[in-house]
Design a protein around this nucleic acid. Structure first.
Lengths: 335, 335
DNA sequence: CGCCACCTCTGGAGCGCTCCAAAGCAGCAT
DNA sequence: ATGCTGCTTTGGAGCGCTCCAGAGGTGGCG
C-alpha cells in the first residue's frame, strides 16, 4: 500500500542502498542515477519512514520541550523561537505543559524516553536528579531552561537577581519610598532571586538604609493571582505612593487591571513593574514597565546548546546566562 | 549500553516474546512470570524503544497538531485540552505553529509524515487538498480544527454565523444604532462568518431595517492590530455610541486598550464585544463581553474524533459543530 | 490411564532502513 | 594488453520490537 525504499529501488532499477544514499548522501551518487531515483520517489509519493531510520542507527531528529505552561506567553515565545530554529534544522519538537506537577512531568519524560528523543529542553520546578539521570542513561540529552542548573548539564537562564536589582534601582530613582514584591518567593527560585535583587538594590542605596520590601505572596503565576493582590493593596494605605515589582508580567497585568477597576490610579498611587516583557505588555492601556528577558535568544541558545550536545563529540557543559534589561513604560513614573 | 528487550528477557530467564507480552498484554502472562519480568525491567532501567515498536507494526502513539499560532490563547487553550486527553491515552502530541504560512505548514506536515504520525489535527487557512491527500496516502488521519471541512474528513468547528448573530442581537437589545466589525473578513472564513451573522441579526431586526455594519479591516489577529483600529475609531464620530464586534478577543483587547489610552470611554462611547472568551477576557479592568467558544470541549472532541478514525474499523467522517454562547460582561451595556 | 482442552510461553520471521565491506567499472599510465 | 586508482553501486547484516503458529505443561474427565 504505502511505498517503501524497496519499491523505489525496484522502480528506479537500483539497489536499496543507492536509494538510501540519495536520501542521506546525495553527493556520492552519480547525477543520472540520482535523477532516476528522485523521479521514482516522486512517482510513488515515497516518504521515508523515520522509525526505521532511527532504528537502523541513523540519528533521530526529534526533541522534546517540557515547560510549566505553554499558554504562558513567556514560555510560548521561547517555544516559538525553539520551533523556528528546529524546523530550519529539520528537527521536530514536541511541546508539553506540566502545570508544574511532578506526575505530569514524569509522564511526559517517560513518553519522550520511549520515543528516544534526541534531547529535551526542560523547565522543571524542582530539579529531580533521578529523572534527568534516567533520561541521560538512554542517551537523551538535557538542557535546563530558565534555571541555572549544575555542572552536569547545559542550561539557559537569566540573571534574575540582576533583574530585581534593575527594578529596585528604577523605583529608587523615581523616588518611591514604599516598595513591595508580588510573586511566589517560596516556590520558584526565579521569583526568589528577583526579590533578592530588589532587596539588594535597596540595601545598596546609601540614602535610605533600612528600606524594606513588603511581600505580597500570590497563589499562582497568572493574571487571576495578580488581580487578587490588587484587593490587598487597595485595602491598605494609599496615602504614600507604592511601587510594586511583580514576579512576572501576567501578575503585573492582573494587578493593574484590578487596581484600575477599584479606582486606584496607576502609576500615581501605585507604580507597577512586571517581569519578562511579554508581547502584551507594550499594548496595555497603560503600557507596562518591565524587566525584559530575551526570550527569542534564550530559545535559540537552548536549542543550539542541545544540538551541540547531541551532535558534537567533545561537548562541554555550559551554563549560559543572559542579562535582563529594564524597559521603562508608563506604569511607573517619577513621583 | 542501553538495555533492550533481549537484555530484559535474559535477566528474567524468559523469551523476548514474553517480555513483549508483559508490556502489551499483561493479562495473558502468569503472575509469577510477570513479576520476574517487571523486576528485570526495573533493574535494567528498561524503556521500550518506540521506533522499533512502530516499525514492527504495533500502532504508533503519536499525533501532530498544526495551528496558526500556538501563542494565541485560543489555540493554546485547545492545545492544552488536546494534550491533557492525549497524555491520558499515552499519546504524544507535537504542536507546530505555521504563522498561517503555506511553506511552514507544508514543512510541518512533511516532518509529521516522516514520523508516521497516526494523525494530525490541522488548522489550515486555505485547505490545500493535496497536502491532506498525501497525508492520507501514508495512512495519517486528519481532523480539521476550527473549520467546517468537507465530507472527506472529520472536523470540529463552531457555528460562527450564530456567534455573530448573538453579538448582533445583544447590540440591538442594548440599543445601539451604530455597529461595526473589526476583523479580517477577507482572509479567514471564521471572521467572515462572524460578520455575516452580525449582519443577519441586524437584518432580522424588524425595528430598524437597513441598519448597516461599518467594516474596520485590521492587519492581523493580534492585540497590535486591534490597537491600530482604535485610532481610526477615535478619529471618527463619537457623538452617537458605537458597538464593535471584534474578530477575536485579542483584537478586542487591543481596541479597548487603545481607546482607553485615547480617552474614549468603554462602554459609554464605544461598546466592545470580543470572540473566543480567552482566559484573560474576564480579568481585564473592564471585563470583556464576548462570544465564547468551548475550547476545552473542542480540543477533546477533536482528539476523540481522531482517535476513533485511527483505531476504529468502521469510522464515518463527522463534522462536529459546537454552538457558541454570549458572555455579557462590562465592555457592553444598555445605552 | 489416556486424551483433550486450556493456559503459558517460545522461536522465528519480518517491519524499513542504514551502514559497511567489497564488488564493479571506468579511465589512465605503463 | 595489464594493472592500478578512484568513483559508484551493491548485497547482507542488523537495529529492537511485535506477531503468529505452535510447543510444553497442567488438570479434568471419560
Amino acid at each position: 500500500m504505502i511505498a517503501n525504499i524497496e519499491d523505489v529501488a525496484r522502480l528506479a532499477g537500483v539497489a536499496r542502498s543507492t536509494v538510501s544514499n540519495v536520501i542521506n548522501r546525495p553527493g556520492i551518487v552519480a547525477e543520472a542515477t540520482r535523477k532516476r531515483v528522485t523521479d521514482a520517489m516522486e512517482m510513488l509519493g515515497y516518504v521515508p519512514n523515520e522509525s526505521a531510520r532511527v532504528l537502523a542507527g541513523g540519528l533521530g531528529r526529534f526533541i522534546g520541550m517540557v515547560v510549566h505552561d505553554a499558554s504562558n506567553p513567556f514560555f510560548g515565545r521561547i517555544a516559538r523561537a525553539v520551533e523556528d530554529i528546529a524546523l530550519e534544522r529539520d528537527y521536530v519538537v514536541t511541546l508539553t505543559s506540566t502545570g508544574a506537577e511532578a506526575a505530569r512531568e514524569d509522564n511526559a519524560l517517560r513518553l519522550l524516553m520511549r520515543q528516544r528523543a534526541q534531547g529535551v529542553l526542560l523547565t522543571t520546578a524542582a530539579l529531580r536528579a533521578t529523572a534527568v539521570a534516567s533520561l541521560r542513561k538512554i542517551g537523551t540529552r538535557v538542557v535546563l531552561l530558565d534555571s541555572p542548573g549544575g555542572d552536569d548539564e547545559c542550561s539557559v537562564s537569566v540573571d534574575d537577581v540582576e533583574g530585581g536589582r534593575l527594578a529596585g534601582r528604577h523605583f529608587l530613582e523615581c523616588g518611591y519610598t514604599r516598595i513591595a514584591f508580588a510573586g511566589r518567593p517560596q516556590r520558584t527560585t526565579q521569583h526568589g532571586d528577583r526579590l533578592t535583587g530588589l532587596r539588594e538594590a535597596l540595601a545598596e542605596d546609601g540614602r535610605r538604609p533600612g528600606l524594606h520590601v513588603q511581600k505580597l505572596t500570590v497563589a499562582g503565576d497568572d493574571v487571576a493571582s495578580g488581580r487578587q493582590a490588587a484587593a490587598t493593596i487597595a485595602a491598605g494605605d494609599l496615602s504614600t505612593p507604592l511601587a510594586v515589582l511583580c514576579g512576572n508580567d501576567l501578575i503585573a497585568m492582573g494587578l493593574m487591571f484590578g487596581l484600575q477597576e477599584l479606582g486606584v490610579r496607576v502609576p500615581d498611587q501605585v507604580a507597577i513593574c512586571g517581569y519578562d516583557d511579554i508581547d502584551l505588555a507594550q499594548y496595555l492601556a497603560i503600557p507596562l514597565t518591565t524587566v525584559r528577558q530575551p526570550m527569542d535568544a534564550m530559545g535559540r541558545a537552548a536549542f543550539e546548546l542541545l544540538l551541540d550536545e547531541v551532535t558534537s563529540k567533545e561537548h562541554t557543559h555550559l551554563g549560559k546566562q543572559f542579562v535582563p534589561e529594564l524597559v521603562v513604560r508608563r506604569s511607573t513614573a517619577p513621583i
